[in-house]
Structures are given as structure tokens and as C-alpha cells.
């Protein structure tokens, strides 16, 4: 399909040639990436079925406590802020103060404070992406 277009496109193509070049090119890219998207999904399905990741066994061991938190929903109310049971009051005060400083005193209300299981991983990623501002 591409070869026939190649021969046709001159330095000054006609409007029709230009349109077929543009439409052909765009459709080509969309189709290739859509195919890649399907292939990637299939790889995902295949991997999850074949490997049977040992996540079910591994996860509870190191992350038992944090993973259980959202499900357990053991929360308390501190001055109208809903927070996890194991977050002490002074940490809540600290978070409120930090929020106030970061938002530069703009009106704000903290509704809930929850521990998160992947915060450090996310922070690590953020740091990596913000430290390499090349290209």
C-alpha cells in the first residue's frame, strides 16, 4: 500500500495526492498503534494467566498492615477531620499546618487523612521524572 504512494508523491503533488498522503499516513499510524494496543493487552492477559504471579502470597506478608487499612476503615474524627485510627493527633496538626503553608493561606478544609500503600513508590517515580528534564 505504501509503495504505490511513494512513487506517486512528487515535489509538488496535486491536492488529491496530498489528501491521500495525509489520510493514508494518519490511518497508518492509528492502525499500527491500535494493533500495538491490542497486542499489548493480549500480552497482559497472557502474562497474568501464564505466570500466575505470586502476589496473592507475597502481598499480605510485607504490606499486611497498610493493605488492611482501607478495608478495615478504622477511622476517628479529630476536629471534623476523618483520619485513620493509627494517625496520632500531632501528625494531623502537622499535615494541617503543611497544607496551610503549601496553599499559601488560601481557604481550605481537610476532610479526611488516610494512609496510602504506594505513596513512597509514587513519590520515587515523581522524583525520577522531575529530575530528568532532558529532550
Amino acid at each position: 500500500m505504501m509503495i504505490s504512494t511513494i512513487a506517486a508523491l512528487a515535489a509538488k503533488p496535486t491536492v488529491l495526492e496530498n489528501v491521500s498522503f495525509i489520510v493514508g499516513g494518519f490511518v497508518f499510524v492509528v492502525v499500527v498503534l491500535a494493533t500495538l494496543s491490542i497486542v499489548t493487552s493480549l500480552i497482559g492477559v497472557l502474562c497474568s494467566r501464564l505466570i500466575k504471579e505470586p502476589t496473592a502470597e507475597q502481598k499480605p506478608a510485607p504490606q499486611a498492615a497498610p493493605a488492611a487499612k482501607p478495608a478495615a476503615a478504622a477511622t476517628k474524627q479529630v476536629n471534623g477531620i476523618e483520619a485513620d485510627e493509627d494517625i496520632p493527633a500531632h501528625v494531623i496538626a502537622l499535615i494541617a499546618a503543611a497544607t496551610h503553608v503549601i496553599l499559601e493561606g488560601r481557604p481550605q478544609r481537610i476532610v479526611s487523612i488516610r494512609g496510602t500503600t504506594q505513596g513512597w513508590a509514587q513519590e520515587g517515580r515523581r522524583e525520577i521524572f522531575s529530575s530528568h528534564r532532558v529532550r
Partner: peptide, 15 residues
């Protein structure tokens, strides 16, 4: 990208 392959279409559209 692998976790959400449909975003490949967004990359295609931007072209």
C-alpha cells in the same frame, strides 16, 4: 502504557 494500552490511541491521535 502497558497497564493501560488504549492510551496508545491518544499518542496516535496527536500525530
Amino acid at each position: 502504557l502497558i497497564a493501560n494500552p488504549r492510551t496508545l490511541l491518544l499518542g496516535a491521535a496527536a500525530q
